[in-house]
Design a protein around this nucleic acid. Structure first.
Lengths: 124, 124
DNA sequence: CTTCGCCTTCGAGCGCGCTCCAAGTCAACC
DNA sequence: GGTTGACTTGGAGCGCGCTCGAAGGCGAAG
């Protein structure tokens, strides 16, 4: 089994078949997915690896358009590594800022939680 | 100065005046904001404190409808502290799961970044 | 008294990221 | 040969969270 149907690819990536088609249409993949003689998509292991990278970028909040831009750079081939790096570094900063912000807010919420815990089931 | 105009409240909360009105309309505040004789909103320090809590919940990803439910519980007054606590605890779990997931993905992205850094400016 | 600027309401509009529907093709099984 | 079911496409629709536009009111400055 060297290639997977869209249903199988969906299962392995955790995306839906709808989303996989949408990503392809929207230029988030490196190239059109191969087709079986029937016209059905056939995903290779390489496709899945790239989709996993896309998933990581998306899960960390990168907008679709930036993923598309990153995909375009990779598609272009060697020579633009500095630009790819810049894109990823910029993204990392955004994510870290967000993590810090969320963590801070979470601490404040935890404080509130502690107050309610005392009210609901006072210790001693 | 014991109360603020919507513009001032916007500045202090980091929200827009549009968003402040929207939150009020949508039931995220504990009660309608007081009005000056002119009909203009006047925000009290207490209003701002509550709005800050709303902001923390929103910034950590709590959906509007859940914030609304939490606001409704607080509005009801004493007696439902356990339910409020439950809501906050559930939210905390979601946030922590998300932080862990994002952190994990970020580590993988960092690995990719390291590869590009070697390619772009090889050490040694 | 006029102008300016901040405020009001109501309701429409928008950007994002999917999500789904309709109509059709094709392969395999009974 | 007929039925089933996974797939195809193009395009519409949706939920979320704002965001904005239109039309008008009020109050202070000149």
């Amino acid at each position: 089994m060297t290639s997977l149907s869209i249903a199988e690819a969906a299962e392995r990536t955790g995306l839906t078949a709808h989303t996989l088609r949408y990503y392809e249409r929207d230029g988030l993949l490196l190239h059109s997915v191969d087709r079986a003689p029937s016209g059905h998509r056939r995903y290779t292991a390489e496709d899945l690896r790239w989709i996993q990278m896309v998933t990581r970028l998306r899960a960390t909040g990168m907008p679709i358009r930036d993923v598309r831009r990153y995909a375009a750079l990779v598609r272009e081939g060697d020579g633009n590594e500095a630009e790819r790096l810049g894109l990823l570094l910029a993204h990392r900063e955004v994510v870290e800022r967000q993590l810090a912000e969320v963590t801070g807010h979470l601490r404040a919420i935890d404080h509130k939680i502690a107050l309610y815990e005392n009210k609901v089931a006072p210790t001693a």
